[in-house]
């Protein structure tokens, strides 16, 4: 397990160098990651007429600055944000140092005096259990019994197969007309004649 943590630590140290803020002299190497979808056009020799082409592409300014951002914005804000987030990280490291490395006894005492709170925290606020009962199981059951077995297999696929069965059923009914009896066949011809002539005479 430790090896994983080591890898993660190395990664987290290095990842920051991908986008060093401009204010301290860096540049963002992955900001042009999706440039072809956002960057301004201009050089394309498109097939459309110039006017409509330009119209279709004149959207670059509409994209919020932070997604394509040329420089990352106001230097003061940027410095402030850097200081703030670094401060929180350092404070967290300090508290952890105090409780887990220097004064383990304090940790145990705090845990004992707030037993209820400790249990809740130890079980991560029971969030997993609450999620499981309130969301995971209902969604799973509804998906399995409702969506899959009733809606999908029953209603939607039933309609598809029903269309096939409908043709089958009509086929079975209509084939009975073919009785094999000569008289029925002659009658069919006769009915046809009567209908056609009737249409002509009485329309």
């Amino acid at each position: 397990m430790a090896i994983v943590l080591v890898l993660l630590a190395i990664g987290s140290v290095l990842a920051g160098y991908v986008g060093v803020p401009t204010v301290i002299g860096g540049s963002n190497r992955i900001e042009h990651f999706l440039a072809p979808s956002f960057a301004a056009p201009g050089m394309d020799a498109g097939g459309e007429s110039g006017a409509s082409h330009a119209e279709g592409l004149s959207e670059a300014p509409t994209v919020p600055a932070e997604s394509t951002g040329e420089g990352g914005g106001d230097p003061n804000t940027e410095l402030g944000l850097m200081a703030f987030s670094s401060g929180i990280a350092v404070a967290g490291i300090g508290i952890a140092l105090f409780f887990f490395l220097r004064r383990r006894d304090v940790t145990d005492r705090v845990a004992a005096s707030f037993a209820g709170v400790h249990r809740v925290l130890l079980n991560k606020y029971y969030v997993d259990e609450i999620y499981d009962a309130a969301i995971v199981q209902p969604v799973k059951n509804a998906s399995e019994r409702g969506l899959w077995k009733v809606v999908d297999a029953g209603v939607i696929d039933g309609a598809v197969n029903g269309a096939g069965k409908l043709v089958d059923g009509w086929s079975a009914i209509l084939r009975r007309l073919q009785t094999g009896s000569m008289r029925a066949y002659a009658l069919s011809v006769f009915v046809g004649v009567v209908l056609i002539l009737g249409y002509y005479v009485w329309r």
């Binding site: 011809v189 056609i196 002539l197 002509y200 005479v201």
Partner: peptide, 13 residues
């Protein structure tokens, strides 16, 4: 002429 139509119908048949 209805007779023409009758002739037509019979030819169709």
């Amino acid at each position: 002429n209805p007779l023409l139509l009758v002739a037509l119908g019979l030819l169709i048949v």
